[in-house]
């Protein structure tokens, strides 16, 4: 194993982490402000990817597709919030889990109704095609670097939004005392719809960005959703900072585990078996990490004030 390969894998872990952050940020924001647990977040990710693929196919431009994915996911989020989610805020988590589980079934089958059963085509824009050289003589795809940059930009943007703007002030107020800001005359219903749509737009953005690298198909949101939950639980539910660190931790642990575990095992057993057992262990690794962290810190690394 060379240093260059290790560096490349570290970048891969970072990129996976950034992608998870885009999902986790919306989830954790929605939980922090509204106290809502939203299993249908993965469906909004799927909506973003489908919107991007469809519009990119019509217009021939990935960038218009990207804008469409933000708009469609935000619109879908706002619509779902207005029709359904707002009835769930004062319910217990059990009802929220069940209602959003039902939404997953409806979204998945609904998308198949609209778009058919075959995966859609979505390619990387020409500007971001290809690979650039890395120190150590290997190459790295431009697009993956762009995802890292996009994630960093979103993290910075969210930080500015929450710490510097009026909306951010209300979000912070909503996180610390929900009744109080209502009493202070803030239109809390609109605030909730806006926050939900913002979270949905972030999920849609993640879906569109990742859709160009993966397969745009029904059900694509579910594996990511579960990883995103692992991320926010590790980070502390409701904490954006926790989501960022949790996402990077999960991304790097997962990538390095898949890469290193079979190699370590190969020192002891034949390579074919090392591959299988190492693969099995690697797929469980992040859940083990999560259990360890929660055993020590039951409310995650950065517990939010009230949760």
């Amino acid at each position: 194993m060379t240093l260059a390969l290790a560096l490349e894998q570290l970048l891969n872990g970072l990129q996976l982490g950034v992608m998870l952050f885009l999902m986790a940020a919306g989830l954790t924001l929605i939980f922090g402000v509204m106290g809502l647990i939203n299993l249908a977040h993965g469906s909004l990710y799927m909506v973003g990817a489908f919107a991007c693929a469809t519009v990119a196919a019509w217009t021939g431009s990935f960038w218009i597709g990207l804008v469409a994915s933000l708009a469609c996911a935000a619109a879908a989020g706002a619509l779902v919030e207005l029709l359904i989610i707002r009835r769930l805020y004062d319910r217990d988590h059990l009802d929220q889990v069940l209602a959003t589980f039902a939404l997953i079934l409806m979204f998945s089958e609904g998308m198949r109704w609209l778009f058919g059963s075959f995966p859609l085509y979505l390619d990387i824009p020409p500007l971001l095609q290809g690979a650039v050289p890395l120190p150590g003589g290997t190459e790295y795809p431009v697009y993956r670097l762009a995802i890292i940059a996009a994630g960093a930009a979103v993290a910075f943007g969210l930080y500015m939004l929450i710490s510097r703007t009026r909306l951010g002030m209300r979000i912070r107020a909503g996180e610390s005392d929900r009744e109080m800001i209502g009493a202070l005359g803030v239109d809390i219903r609109t605030l909730y719809t806006v926050v939900f749509a913002l979270g949905a737009a972030l999920a849609g953005l993640a879906g569109a960005l990742v859709g160009a690298l993966q397969s745009v198909q029904v059900g694509m949101g579910e594996p990511v959703l579960i990883l995103a939950f692992v991320v926010i639980v590790i980070g502390g539910i409701g904490s954006i900072k926790g989501a960022l660190l949790g996402a990077l931790l999960v991304g790097v642990t997962d990538t390095m585990g898949r890469f290193l575990l079979p190699k370590i095992l190969a020192l002891f057993v034949p390579p074919a078996q090392a591959g299988m057992i190492g693969g099995a262990a690697a797929s469980m690794l992040i859940y083990i990490v999560m259990a360890l962290i929660l055993a020590v810190k039951p409310r995650g690394l950065f517990p939010a004030a009230h949760a």
């Binding site: 692992v230 859940y287 259990a291 929660l294």
Partner: peptide, 15 residues
């Protein structure tokens, strides 16, 4: 069971 609320939902899911 060291956790509660949403954490409990998620950690049982993870296990």
């Amino acid at each position: 069971l060291r956790t509660s609320g949403v954490y409990f939902i998620m950690i049982t899911l993870a296990f």
